[in-house]
Design a binder for these strands. Structure first.
Lengths: 334, 334
DNA sequence: CCGGCCCAGTAAACCGCTTTACGTGGCAAA
DNA sequence: TTTGCCACGTAAAGCGGTTTACTGGGCCGG
């Protein structure tokens, strides 16, 4: 690999001149510029970013940590962040923690390496304080999708409560009163908020919620199956289910199908997220769409703002949208 | 941020001593070790990876380029690579090119930056020679999933031909003779090989293929829909379709459903990949499973081997497996 | 009592680039 | 003729580590 000095020598100038020329920090006469350009071309010179970063302290790169890159929701979010970052000339280093706290910690600590200018963080498990403490030391972080309590950095979320409210209301307006809710771990902000939206819709309609029909666990297909089985095993069955993630909904769907419970004939179902497969399952899933592209875009924008110190803590709430497909039917008495 | 020198000063030794101690290149008496450890703890020292890499030339990191991280197939592959890399203490920098040639080129060129020790490359568009030429200059690259002709680096593929052969044979054994094939861009190795497998199965059974029933385009849902529409519009219809990607199959499924063509009743369908949603669609998709986790694992293993110069060009072919679900039925005459 | 060896470290160069603070040489103005 | 300034650069330190070669002192054996 040719270095800056090689280029300088070839062009008959000092490394300083080449460096400053390349960074537009010096005016050179045409002749000199040509010689440098020729040398660069001849040697196929590419600046060593590592050295550059070490020297300048700027990385023009960010890190993106996601719980599970194999999960379409996070993958789409990651793609959106990357697209926006590219527009600004930033590289994105993605990593997936696979729900491992140690890997989350690692990812944050790596901020120290100077490798990146900032971090967009997604998590899907409640924090026990570890992450919050670690993050408190940084000001170049943005939280996306899920909160970590006690951290004062910009955050980008969706209107979880509104989403769940709309989903629940749709069911109520279809005549349902016996509605169950399946959601993720209780420590998560999104879980709390969606539960609140559900509760509010039920309260407004004057219909009581039942504790045994509120099932909190994980945002996973596995838990969706488990929860559905529990609901089916109960003495009374709800006529509709709000699943707070499409992953959950799909798990529910599988169990219902196996058990011969028709959707939406015998049981209505609403999901959350509008993952790519939501319209592919049978029946096509009515669900609450999160504006994934927008979330990614704004998260990056916010991060850029804190990196450039033009802004600090802000919380952005993006609206969600109820997408009506085929998994909800009017409740028929009997 | 505390530096090595800060630690050295705090511990009352030279930076050299600290560096060598941390890298196990020196034996120090217990007392000195304790002082250094204490200094590190007190200052919360973390080595600056950038500096380390610049100095050593080793990055303990690889780069992973995927065409589209939002695509579950690539996302899962990425997750698998990352999992294996982590076991070996390597960081993974993922980037998605979104099918943009310029971004692919960029990703390769970035190998020069010393940022990473090597590159695992996935692509989903035929190369016009650009990539091949660029890659020829590197020996720390592994190709995954798809080939780039003219490049002599380790490659990890699946048995595409066998997969398509098995899928086609399944249909033939179910009594089908009018079988269409839908696949990706014709320049791609996987497309060629799957086509060959299809052809071989048809030849062996003594049934002729028809040009108008072999539709090559893109590995996308969009093209799946388009191809399905073309098949339905033809004067004669096949009774079964081999879709060379589950994305294609899903597109096909949508069009068939809209057109009132029952699957598998009126039309049998086999996919390829076994993406996560394959078992969720209706009917659950019979498809050819690619061993994604294994592919990722082996790709990393191979990359490590070339990085350490213990191996050069090898081509690995991983077996695929036909997963029979509900989208294929016996052909009923008439 | 002296030479040599080992223990416990150290000085200094280097990785490749940036940046601050300085030259030069030539020409115009005084 | 001298001053001064501008155009065109350069020297050298620094980013935070690693690594090679070396050294000073204590102790042991002869």
């Amino acid at each position: 690999m040719a270095t800056l000095s090689d280029v300088a020598e070839e062009a008959g100038v000092s490394p300083t001149a080449v460096s400053r020329y390349l960074n537009n920090r010096i005016e050179l006469p045409q002749g000199t510029r040509d010689r440098i350009d020729a040398a660069i071309a001849k040697l196929d010179y590419r600046p060593n970013l590592l050295a550059k970063r070490l020297s300048t302290g700027k990385a023009e790169a960010i890190s993106l940590v996601t719980p599970e890159i194999g999960n379409p929701f996070f993958a789409e979010l990651a793609a959106a962040v990357e697209a926006e970052a590219e527009r600004h000339g930033y590289a994105v280093y993605m990593s997936s923690t696979r729900g491992d706290r140690a890997r989350e910690v690692d990812a944050i600590k790596r901020l120290h390496d100077q490798h990146v200018d900032g971090l967009i963080m997604m998590t899907n498990q409640p924090d026990d304080g570890t992450l919050a403490e670690l993050l408190a030391r940084h000001d170049n972080v943005v939280l996306l999708d899920e909160d970590i309590p006690g951290v004062s950095v910009p955050r980008v979320f969706v209107e979880n409560e509104e989403g769940a409210y709309a989903a629940t209301k749709l069911l109520i307006e279809a005549g349902h009163r016996d509605i169950a809710l399946i959601s993720g771990p209780s420590g998560l902000m999104s879980v709390r908020e969606r539960l609140a939206g559900f509760q509010r819709a039920m309260d407004e309609a004057g219909v009581a919620t039942r504790d045994e029909w509120i099932l909190l666990g994980q945002y996973s297909r596995e838990f969706g199956r488990e929860a559905a089985e529990r609901l089916l095993a109960g003495v009374e069955r709800p006529s509709a289910i709000v699943a707070c993630s499409d992953y959950l909904a799909v798990g529910v769907l599988q169990v219902l199908r196996q058990s011969g419970v028709a959707v939406p004939g015998d049981m209505s179902l609403v999901g959350f997220d509008d993952m790519p497969f939501a319209e592919l399952v049978d029946p096509a899933l009515t669900t609450v769409r999160q504006p994934v592209a927008e979330m990614g875009r704004i998260a990056f924008e916010r991060l850029l703002a804190v990196i450039n110190k033009t802004e600090t803590e802000t919380v952005t709430r993006l609206p969600v949208e109820l997408v009506v497909r085929k998994s909800v039917a009017r409740f028929e008495r009997g």
